[in-house]
Design a protein around this nucleic acid. Structure first.
Lengths: 153, 153
DNA sequence: GTTACTGCAAACTTTTTGCACGACA
DNA sequence: TGTCGTGCAAAAAGTTTGCAGTAAC
C-alpha cells in the first residue's frame, strides 16, 4: 500500500481510457476494482481485492471482481503474478520488474534492475521458441517470517 | 519424455531410499508415481501423471497421486513448477535450472546456464529477506504455436 | 430505449479430507 | 499382526457461466 496517490490516479485514468476506447462501459464497479488493484503493491488475490472494494460498494459480488480482473488482464492493464500456489494474484505495475517471493508466507516484493531486464536467453532457447520477456524470481524467506520462526529446519 | 533410462533409474532409486529412510512404506503406487514423474521432462500436471500411472495400475485413485506428489515434494525430491495458471505441475529435475514458458500452450522447457544460476539479487532485496535461490523465467511463444497461428496480434 | 453489466445462483475444476478396507513391514 | 496407505466418497477452495433485472450510454 505504498503506491503514490498520483501514480494511482494515473493508473485509474489509464484504465478508464482503455475501457472507453475498447467500447466497454465505465461502471463504478469496474472503476473501484481498478482503483483497488492500482493502489496496492502487495500483489493481492481476488478475495483481498473483493474485500477492499466491498468497503465502498458493499453489494458488489465476487464474480464481478473476477470478471473485471479478467477484462483488465486481457486489456493488458494488469498482470497476473504466477508465483505462489493457491488463489490468483494480480499486479498493476506494468513497468518491467522482477520479484522476491517468500516461501513461507507468500509475500511478493517487486524488484528493479536494468541488468536483470536485459538478461538474454541461453542458445538452447532458440530452437524452442521466440522470447518476449524475462522475469527473475528470487525465492527465500522474508525477515518477518525469520523473526517469527527462526529455526524451520 | 527424453530423460535417459539411467537417469530415471537413478531418480527412482533416490525416491525409494528417501522413502525408507523417512519411515515411509514403499508401496507400488508410490514407486509408479515416482517413476512417472522421473521419466518426464515436460513438467506434467497431476491429471497427466494419473493417466500415465493408470496404464500400469488401473485401479489407482487420483487422490493417491495427489498425496504421493505432496510427499515427494515435502521430501525435497520433486519440485512444483508455478509458471502457468490452472493445475499444479511437477518437475523431478532437481539440478539448478531455469525455464522457457510458452504463453499460448503452457509448454515449459528447462534451460541451463551457470551465468543464470549465479545472478545476484539487487540491493533492494536485503531489507526484505534472505535469498535462497534464483530462477530465471523467459516467456514467449513456442515455434509450434507460432506455426499453428502465426498472427495472434 | 438499447444494450451491456451486475448480482445471484448454480455448475465446474482442482485439491483436500474422513473413513473403512487392504497391504506393507 | 499392527499400523500405514489406499480407494471411495464427500467436501472444500477457487473460478466460471447462465439468466433476469439494472444501469450506462
Amino acid at each position: 500500500m505504498t503506491v503514490s496517490a498520483t501514480e494511482v490516479a494515473r493508473r485509474v485514468l489509464l484504465f478508464e481510457q482503455a475501457l472507453r476506447s475498447e467500447g466497454f462501459r465505465v461502471s463504478h464497479q469496474r472503476l473501484e476494482v481498478a482503483c483497488e488493484i492500482a493502489r496496492s503493491d502487495s500483489h493481492p488475490d481476488v478475495e483481498t481485492i473483493y474485500r477492499g472494494v466491498r468497503e465502498r460498494i458493499p453489494t458488489i459480488s465476487l464474480d464481478t471482481v473476477y470478471r473485471t480482473l479478467g477484462e483488465l488482464e486481457r486489456l493488458g492493464l494488469i498482470g497476473r503474478v504466477i508465483a505462489t500456489p493457491g488463489p490468483a494474484r494480480y499486479d498493476s505495475n506494468q513497468a518491467p520488474h522482477h520479484h522476491f517471493v517468500c516461501q513461507r508466507c507468500g509475500l511478493i516484493r517487486d524488484l528493479y534492475g536494468e541488468c536483470l531486464d536485459s538478461i538474454s536467453a541461453p542458445d538452447q532457447t532458440a530452437p524452442v521458441g521466440r522470447v518476449e520477456g524475462v522475469e527473475v524470481r528470487f525465492h527465500g524467506v522474508c525477515h518477518e517470517c525469520t523473526r517469527k520462526e527462526p529455526r524451520h529446519e
